[in-house]
C-alpha cells in the first residue's frame, strides 16, 4: 500500500475563462491532516469537489489511495468521506434514521450497520439526540451529525470543507479534538478553514491556494523556511536605546526599528544563527541587552505573506 493517500496531479478546472484551479499538485501522506487554506474563491472547494468525485477536472487527475477520481470514481467513493460546507439534511427524519440511511446507502448491512451507527453516534456525541428530528438541532449538532454521516462507512480519507464555520468556540474545540483523534486512528484528512489558528494546531501540513494556484505547501515551518526568513525581534536595551536602534538599522537584514522606551522592535531577515550573531554584536558594542524576544510567524502571518488578497 502506497504511503501517499491523496494526490493531486497537475489539476486544472476551468469554468469558461475562469481558471478555478490552475495546475495544482500536492500529496498528503496516510494519517496526516492537511489544511487547505486560501481566500474565498481561491479554488479550495472546487479542488475538494473534484477529489470527492463530484466534479471533473478540465485537465490533470487526482488520486485517492491510488485510484483516479476520473476513471475509478466508485472505488474512490468507498474510501472517501466528504463533508461539504452545506448540511444536506432531510425533513421528517431523526438523527439515527439519517445516519442509518447513509449507512445503507454505503452498503452496510445487518449488525455491521447497527454497530457502526452506534459508534458514530457515540463518537460524534450525538447519542442523546438519536431520536430527535434534525430540523430541531443546533448548528453545532448538525455539524457533528454531518461529520458522522461522512464517517459512517469508515472511510480512509476524509474531506472536510469549512467544517468549523459558524461554530461557537467550544464546538470548534470539540471538532478539532475529533479531527485529531480521527487522524490518530489513521485517517487522512483534507480540511479547509478560515480559522487559521485552529488549522495550525491540528494540521501536519498546509497548502496555500490563491486564484486557483498553489502558492506554498508543506508544514508551517517549511513554508516559513521556503519564504524569506522574516521574523520580528524585540530587544530590551537598558540604556542608549536610541543610539542602539540607529546602529542596528545600519546592519543588513534589519528593518526600520521602532523604539518603545527600552524596547527596540524591528523586522529581521535571517536564520537563528544570524540572530545570535546580531545579539553578540550588540553586546560587543557595549550595549546592556537584558532581553531578546523572537516572534515566530504564525500561520496567519504566513498566509498574509504568501497571498495577496486577490479574489477571482
Amino acid at each position: 500500500m502506497s504511503d501517499t493517500c491523496i494526490e493531486l496531479r497537475r489539476l486544472h478546472r476551468f469554468f469558461g475563462k475562469t481558471k478555478a484551479v490552475n495546475d495544482v499538485s500536492f500529496s498528503v501522506p496516510r494519517g496526516h491532516v492537511f489544511g487547505y487554506i486560501g481566500p474565498n474563491g481561491a479554488g479550495k472547494t472546487t479542488s475538494m469537489r473534484i477529489l470527492a468525485t463530484l466534479d471533473l477536472p478540465s485537465y490533470g487527475d487526482a488520486f485517492v489511495d491510488g485510484f483516479s477520481v476520473v476513471n475509478d470514481p466508485e472505488l474512490v467513493r468507498r474510501r472517501l468521506g466528504f463533508m461539504p460546507d452545506s448540511f444536506g439534511t432531510y425533513r421528517d427524519v431523526n438523527c439515527a434514521e439519517y445516519l442509518d440511511f447513509f449507512a445503507r446507502a454505503n452498503g452496510l448491512v445487518g449488525r455491521q450497520r447497527t454497530q457502526r451507527l452506534q459508534w458514530v453516534l457515540h463518537f460524534t456525541g450525538t447519542s442523546g439526540m438519536a431520536e430527535k428530528p434534525i430540523r430541531g438541532l443546533s448548528k453545532g449538532m448538525k455539524q457533528r451529525l454531518c461529520l458522522g454521516r461522512a464517517l459512517i462507512h469508515d472511510p480512509a480519507v476524509m474531506i472536510l470543507d469549512e467544517p468549523a464555520s459558524g461554530l461557537d468556540p467550544r464546538a470548534r474545540i470539540d471538532l478539532r479534538k475529533m479531527i485529531r483523534e480521527l487522524a490518530d486512528r489513521g485517517k487522512t484528512i483534507l480540511i479547509s478553514s478560515h480559522i487559521l489558528t485552529e488549522l495550525a494546531e491540528m494540521c501536519d501540513s498546509v497548502g496555500i491556494i490563491e486564484q486557483g494556484q498553489l502558492l506554498a505547501t508543506g508544514s508551517v515551518e517549511e513554508i516559513q523556511r521556503q519564504r524569506a526568513q522574516h521574523r520580528e525581534l524585540v530587544v530590551r536595551v537598558l540604556d542608549r536605546a536610541d543610539q542602539a536602534a540607529g546602529e542596528l538599522h545600519s546592519r543588513d537584514g534589519v528593518g526600520r526599528p521602532l523604539i518603545d522606551g527600552q524596547q527596540i522592535r524591528f523586522e529581521f531577515e535571517g536564520d537563528a544563527e544570524s540572530q545570535a550573531d546580531l545579539v553578540a554584536w550588540l553586546v560587543g558594542r557595549g550595549y546592556r541587552v537584558s532581553e531578546v524576544v523572537s516572534h515566530k510567524k504564525s500561520l496567519e502571518d504566513v498566509f498574509l505573506q504568501v497571498t495577496e488578497g486577490l479574489v477571482q
Binding site: 463530484l54 466508485e74 467513493r77 468507498r78 461539504p84 444536506g88 446507502a105
Partner: peptide
C-alpha cells in the same frame, strides 16, 4: 436543492 443528491451520488448507490 438541498444538496443531498450530491451526498447520495458519492455513496454506493
Amino acid at each position: 436543492d438541498d444538496g443531498t443528491l450530491e451526498l447520495l451520488s458519492i455513496t454506493a448507490l
